[in-house]
Amino acid sequence: MSMNRSVKLKPNAADLLIVAAVLLLAALALFRFFPGGARDGAQSAVVSIDGKIVERLPLFQRAQRSYTANGYTLRVSVEDGGVRVAQSDCPTQDCVHTGVISRRGQSIVCLPARLTVTIEGAPDGYDLVVGQGVAE
């Protein structure tokens, strides 16, 4: 049993193909999951527990919420157009350390509580409208 003699130990031009592919994928992911990237007035923080959306908090309005999920309690705070986990009794504290997020596509994840906070932009359109508005 011996090493394959044909092993290439020096980086070559073909490797650049792989680097390019990874960069392309990163760019695609960036483009796909940060569509606008910028802050805009109609964003909301979508709070999910166990993959199910429990609440959409508009970012334009201050709010304090407490969520209890899988044995942990997290306090989520919306202020100044951003959202953060202000307090959590989870062991990792990663959610608290993430700090404030305010741009579309950003998210806070608390794995122990299986809770996520993701920022979504304004709903991109609708299929139907209810309410007739002022009668003509």
């Binding site: 709903p123 359109g125 609708y126 299929d127 139907l128 409208v129 209810v130 309410g131 007739q132 508005g133 002022v134």
Partner: peptide
């Protein structure tokens, strides 16, 4: 389905958008 709820004060604006399925959404104003 994404159902926009019209702002009664301004026909061009909406109170928000509701995602729903298998239901009725009826507005009285």
């Amino acid at each position: 389905w994404r159902v926009a709820i019209r702002d009664p004060a301004d026909r061009e604006r909406y109170l928000g958008v509701l995602a729903a399925r298998d239901c009725f959404i009826v507005t009285s104003g």
